[in-house]
Design a binder for these strands. Sequence first.
DNA 1: TTCGTAATTCGATGTTCGTCGAACATCGAA
DNA 2: TTCGATGTTCGACGAACATCGAATTACGAA
Lengths: 131, 131
Amino acid sequence: MAPREQEHPALNDVELVTVLSALAEPTRLRIVRMLAAMEGERAWKDIDLPIAQSTLSHHLKILRNAGLVQNRTEGTRCFISLRDAELEGRFPGLLESVLECRDTALARESEEPASPEKHGATEGSSVPAAT
Amino acid sequence: MAPREQEHPALNDVELVTVLSALAEPTRLRIVRMLAAMEGERAWKDIDLPIAQSTLSHHLKILRNAGLVQNRTEGTRCFISLRDAELEGRFPGLLESVLECRDTALARESEEPASPEKHGATEGSSVPAAT
DNA sequence: TTCGTAATTCGATGTTCGTCGAACATCGAA
DNA sequence: TTCGATGTTCGACGAACATCGAATTACGAA
């Protein structure tokens, strides 16, 4: 990365409101979903969203401070990953329930209509479909 | 209540971010916990928190719009209750995981210091549980 | 060393949010 | 009808937030 090594809080020092606040923002929720959709890490550069780099950095910092993600530095670039296992220990079921929910509007808005493939993914509950 | 009957959204129209935003505020989370701690409804007047009435009304409106609570009007007063069953249908496990988590700071701040228990760590989960 | 790339920090801007007191609307009771 | 109690709405205020572009830091490569 660029400046200095990042700090990651111990999960026990993280409050529930902090986590909820971090997740309560469309862009950040999108990032979390993106990370959850894949195993392991994701390169910073590969997170492409229609926002400025500085904004993305800002959101990642908030997610980091909330204990939701962690980043590993390798040379000049860094890789982000979800702290899902630890999270499960501190807030049992929380992340899972957030991810499991197929948010209608958000899903519609965050997925590109460009990819012809259908990411079935969320199985189970089919959202009542737009009427 | 005072002016006119309240509106309650259908849970399917509620987005996840809306719910998370509603919960991501200490006072509101406290209200939700308070409602969850008891079965059934709670009189508006009995929700006493160190905030102005107008502020409480504002928070309840946000919780209402997020589909988290509902209120029943009876004469001039109203009773608030959690829409837990419906919530469970729309966001499975979410409310439960939020309630189950013993938030250190918040718990300390919202619970009476009356219980001399020592509950050292957070993961112990000595939550009364109401599953 | 110098250059370029990668990510963070800084400063500024406009918006949203929590909070309050005052004014208002609605109902039951006198 | 008048009065009092109960919530809600309205303006206003300061704090916090999302966003951006520019400056900065850190590293690898030439």
